[in-house]
């Protein structure tokens, strides 16, 4: 089985996996980094969102082979005190919480790119992340809150 060297959350991992295996399953089943979630397997729900070189990607659709030499960040690599997590905490956004790690990764990528996003920009960046508990109102407000705090 092929072997891959991956840089995840500033740690170097060596894993054996089929080259077509999506990074989501490498994280979950091989490395026990289970904060990235499985929701749909076809990039429709965003629960598996991670950062590759700072860009949000759907981990369920990206094969491990494509990620050697890239910088990967998962929810486990985002500090607890990160302004986005703080605003999520302040507004008590999560209900079941299953989609929220993906939501947070999408929100961080948005704010890194656009520190003061407009309503349309928030909608566009977050539209790929489904929440069936329906926490959208709080997600929008938490992004605005984090945007304020990041600048301050």
């Amino acid at each position: 089985m092929p072997r891959f060297i991956l840089n995840i959350n500033d740690i170097e991992y060596t894993v054996e996996a089929p080259e077509r295996m999506p990074i989501l399953w490498v994280l979950r089943d091989k490395l026990n980094l289970t904060g990235s979630k499985f929701g749909c397997g076809i990039g429709q729900c965003g629960a598996c969102t991670i950062h590759v070189d700072g860009t949000p990607v759907r981990g369920c659709c990206v094969p491990v082979k494509a990620l050697e030499g890239k910088v990967l960040r998962t929810i486990e690599g985002v500090p607890t005190e990160h302004p986005v997590k703080e605003s999520w905490r302040k507004l008590d956004v999560a209900q079941c919480g299953y989609c929220q790690t993906g939501q947070i990764m999408s929100a961080i990528a948005l704010l890194d790119r656009k520190p003061k996003p407009t309503r349309e920009e928030i909608n566009r960046a977050m539209k790929g992340n489904i929440c069936r508990c329906g926490t959208y109102k709080r997600i929008k407000n938490a992004i605005k809150e984090a945007s304020k705090n990041q600048i301050a």
Binding site: R28, G35, I75, R89, A94, Q95, T101
Partner: peptide, 19 residues
């Protein structure tokens, strides 16, 4: 009062059946 699972959720540490 805050959702007692909130902190674990935000760090990806709440254990679901899938995990």
């Amino acid at each position: 009062k805050k959702n007692l699972n909130q902190d674990k959720i935000l760090d990806g540490k709440l254990q679901y059946s899938m995990d």
